[in-house]
Design a protein around this nucleic acid. Sequence first.
DNA 1: CTGATTCACGGGTACGTTAACGAATATATT
DNA 2: AATATATTCGTTAACGTACCCGTGAATCAG
Lengths: 353, 353
Amino acid sequence: MKKRVNELTGVKEIARRANVSIATVDRVLHNRKGVSKQTKEKILGIIEELNYEPNLLAQRLASRKILRLATLIPEISKETSFWDAPLKGIEQADKEIKQFGIIIDKYFYDQNKIESFVEQTKIILESNPDGILLAPSFIEESVRFTDKCRQLNIPYVLIDSDLPNGGSLSYIGPNLYHSGYLAAHLVSYLIKNGEKILIVNISREIDNHHHLLKKEEGFRAYFDKHKKPDNILKIDIRDTDLKSIEKYLSNIFTEHNDIRIVFVTNSRVSKVAHFIDSSKKDVILIGYDFLKENIEYMDKGIIDFLVCQKPKQQGYRGLISLYQHLAFSSPVEKIYFMPIDILTKENSAFYRN
Amino acid sequence: MKKRVNELTGVKEIARRANVSIATVDRVLHNRKGVSKQTKEKILGIIEELNYEPNLLAQRLASRKILRLATLIPEISKETSFWDAPLKGIEQADKEIKQFGIIIDKYFYDQNKIESFVEQTKIILESNPDGILLAPSFIEESVRFTDKCRQLNIPYVLIDSDLPNGGSLSYIGPNLYHSGYLAAHLVSYLIKNGEKILIVNISREIDNHHHLLKKEEGFRAYFDKHKKPDNILKIDIRDTDLKSIEKYLSNIFTEHNDIRIVFVTNSRVSKVAHFIDSSKKDVILIGYDFLKENIEYMDKGIIDFLVCQKPKQQGYRGLISLYQHLAFSSPVEKIYFMPIDILTKENSAFYRN
DNA sequence: CTGATTCACGGGTACGTTAACGAATATATT
DNA sequence: AATATATTCGTTAACGTACCCGTGAATCAG
């Protein structure tokens, strides 16, 4: 540890070289008006020459601005604990940037109630935040909301699924199509001739369903492009309670006793696992997401593979992106696809969500 | 954006409540001497009460300390570009924390020359850094070096492989055993009865070899615990040039024409891929690391799976840990195992190293 | 009892940046 | 020409913390 040497950087040095006060340098740096063209260019030249970079610490410290960010994601329901992870990411980001003068207000909606979503968006707009992190489950309503945000010049970041209207500061989430494609690729290693594949979609709300269709599309696309297995079955289940699900599954398994691979297009795979487990079927089960209940079935050897896309990171990165954009106007990747992680019994213990 | 409200936090508020000056509060915070027991306790009480957390920005800004960190990793050789990734991580960390008064000096050694390693450690010790990031390829010499560091009270973080003497601030890297175990688990899905597995170790230096043995051990352990495949072959190749490697492989493939799975225990898998490709063998090839040449063979369909452990993150996290420990004495995970990532042709494009 | 030493504490400046406020000069208006 | 208005710039007080230096009081040595 040494004393800091007297470096010749910073606004002070720039001011000295330009024979002006630091206030003038500051004006140029934030290109505010009140500086003659001449001196402005002179200062810009010196900034270039020194390739000055502002001290972020001092910047944030001296800035009396407070940034208020709002997050809107589904509440954690009994049906699925998926949204626990993004929330954790949000909380972590909150903790890290709280000191930097950032206030984060968290809002939640019920994934089964569109009204709750709309209501929360209204509350958020009234609070007039500086930026928004949104998980847009309901497409139409989300489009309306984000259009409004653009009108009001409030930047927003989307996580988990994208919207068709564009204009977000960034999308951070999975490439659904490719995650399905990957799953099919895995399956291609696992399946033998004559065996059947079963695709299982479990979802109540139509909007979320769109999510699943994208994955299914990718899944099928793989087999269209490569050697097609003899038979791909599919079942859509619109109830999310265990009993209904088991009934549907039981039916289709009775009808087809040569199903070898089961691909569940979302995190409800644990419910399918419950059925497979109790009915002692010998199938390979592939599903989505690093949830406690899924991991348990993986450890038991019922679920073979889980595809996962770092939901916690999505929340975390989303907020950090907003913060960096607002505080330092740093560039943000417009589309940030999460990696498509493959989990098995043997690497899940090391996974970082 | 609003003005910051007049909050009553910070040393000033503590000082006000305790009827002392901020200097005294500061003394207590850094528990330096010069404060009577009475007032110290009073101040500590108030700190507790407000659950005061120091403003890290102001802390770093006001601190005249400069932290100097040294990194020592293998240089990027023609033989393998593996160390490019950790270096990138180091550079990224450098960029991010440069402003916080951190100077990072990078040192490199030749993985084929122990002397170069020893020499660099000497230079580093002479420079008397505040912390060290080390990739300890040569075990014995590294132990000697780190023992010295502990004597001198210089904290160090290990990446990529751990050392037996303990005492590091943190180990950040793979769990080699489990990565081999995982690979075997994958293989168990892919292999059919009667087919043979070939393990390929390619390494010149004995020390690095230890790395590979750990993976092999994990790999074999899986099959010891589960149904054992009929035949696991193994070949140790001590030359790293393509020609020698191909000769060895050619021999063993001639001898055994029913090898179905090839498991290469490190990143040199691309050289094996070259052989497989040109000799048109139909085998499943599993190897390590997200290197350009490996990805190319994966895209061509020659390499089926790559196991990868975020080498860039290792460099990045290592430095960040050191920084946080030294600057804020924040707690650091003693062992941080990287996730064991499975890459295939279909998810490698989304991978973040 | 005097001088030196130690102890407990406060004053004040610095870190690099922001931005409110106001001064000085130039230009426009009547 | 006198006044009003714009333009261009400097002074200065923050932001929250670190730490040097100085002061007064208590304690100790001789």
